[in-house]
Design a protein around this nucleic acid. Structure first.
Lengths: 225, 225
DNA sequence: CTGACTGAAATTGTCGACAATCTTCCTCCC
DNA sequence: GGGAGGAAGATTGTCGACAATTTCAGTCAG
């Protein structure tokens, strides 16, 4: 609760951020109704800014919107997941390719250091912790940043990843493939450090595809119940 | 002018469509101010729906938006063009790859027929007409559709292509490469008909890159003046 | 003449109210 | 008992007005 913003003209952005956080944290569950009046009361603001935030969230894929009916937290199907992963494959492969061409030696070293840290975390924590603790996400975001393409970064960071996060939440815990993923990450980092764009792109493509295979198996298995 | 919508709840969508058309047709030029009051008066509607449409256009990249200041028709720089083409390369290559895997023989034949028709138009019209008459756009949209991925289709059709269209308008006429493009299109169609996803993706990637090389040359040349 | 300041005008951000539409639930007819 | 019809309540879409902010013209000091 608590009042949302002080400066004039920021309330809609603040609400958007709050709603996004609530959805991704699971405080608002998929399918849940997002009534404008209720949200307006909750954020102590009028319906105008709330409407604006909801439209933007719908555009980002976190909210489904039906004219004259209203907004709900989006429910992602298995078909949606496939579509998302196909897009992810293309975007991340391109990001890795560009990152290899553009990353400075220092940036490549930093990426390697990040993986070293992840390796330590995997050794210390029980199986599967890597993926869930955000280590996987960190790595992919850094590469998107190194691509030097702000549009690709935006698509990944504020559209695709949030939707994937919502997907995992909806379909229960997904165990991930921590150890294998880390090894693949290391190969990708090497390709980037070597400036080999084609290889980095190829490896990233395989990495995403493997991740999809693993996820699709769990999801379809779950869908049968 | 004329009244915008009849049914309750559609005015913002109608305004969005009108504005998009005006921008793409050049009736609203890049950099031009888009005041909410003026637009509201023009469309005979209040500022609410206008605001909504402007926000969505900003999200689609056709309008630049500054908080507390307002919206303008977006001015795309050479750097923006590069970023757009990098994204386009990744998206269209993936679309071509998926199209090759999923298109039915009939769909592949239809695509071939479309190219036959384009060949006729090229023979009939003066140089460069292919590109500008929309033939090029047709081909790419069909492939995006054949990809079977609605998300990729949406990104291309309602985000990337409009921005590219705006870009060409801003930087004056771009002559295109009609004849070469057609030949490349034919090769891509063959790969799709053969179900060869990797080849289709590779050829499309080259096609987009060649298009970028041509465009970048003209743009940077123009930027020097 | 240049630059900072001031105040007015114009513009955006927000609000509360009304109209159109959807949803729910009750009634009535078969 | 089941389904069509309809009225009441709730919700979204739209509007006009007010508050906060930016912009711009004019003034004045240096």
């Amino acid at each position: 609760m608590s009042t949302i913003s002080v400066r004039h003209g920021d309330s809609s952005a603040a609400i958007l951020e709050r709603l996004r956080a609530d959805i991704l944290a699971g405080r608002l569950v998929p399918g849940e109704r997002l009534g404008e009046v209720a949200l307006a009361r909750r954020f102590e603001v009028s319906r105008g800014p709330v409407r604006e935030a909801l439209r933007l969230l719908a555009d980002a894929g976190l909210v489904s919107f039906t004219p004259n009916v209203g907004a709900r937290v989006r429910e992602l199907s298995l078909a949606d997941a496939r579509v998302l992963y196909e897009l992810r494959e293309a975007l991340e492969a391109e990001a890795a390719r560009l990152a290899a061409l553009r990353a400075t030696p220092e940036e490549a070293r930093d990426l390697g250091a990040l993986l070293k840290q992840h390796a330590g975390e995997i050794a210390a924590h029980p199986v599967g912790a890597y993926f869930q603790s955000g280590g996987d996400a960190d790595f992919h975001i850094v590469i998107a940043r190194l691509s030097g393409n702000p549009l690709i970064l935006r698509l990944l960071d504020s559209e695709l990843y949030p939707q994937l996060s919502l997907l995992r939440r909806r379909h229960g815990r997904v165990q991930g493939r921590g150890r294998e993923a880390l090894i693949e990450h290391e190969r990708i980092q090497e390709a980037i450090a070597a400036g080999d764009g084609e290889l980095a792109g190829l490896l990233m493509r395989r990495h995403i595809r493997a991740s999809w295979t693993s996820l699709a198996g769990e999801l379809s298995q779950e869908e049968e119940r």
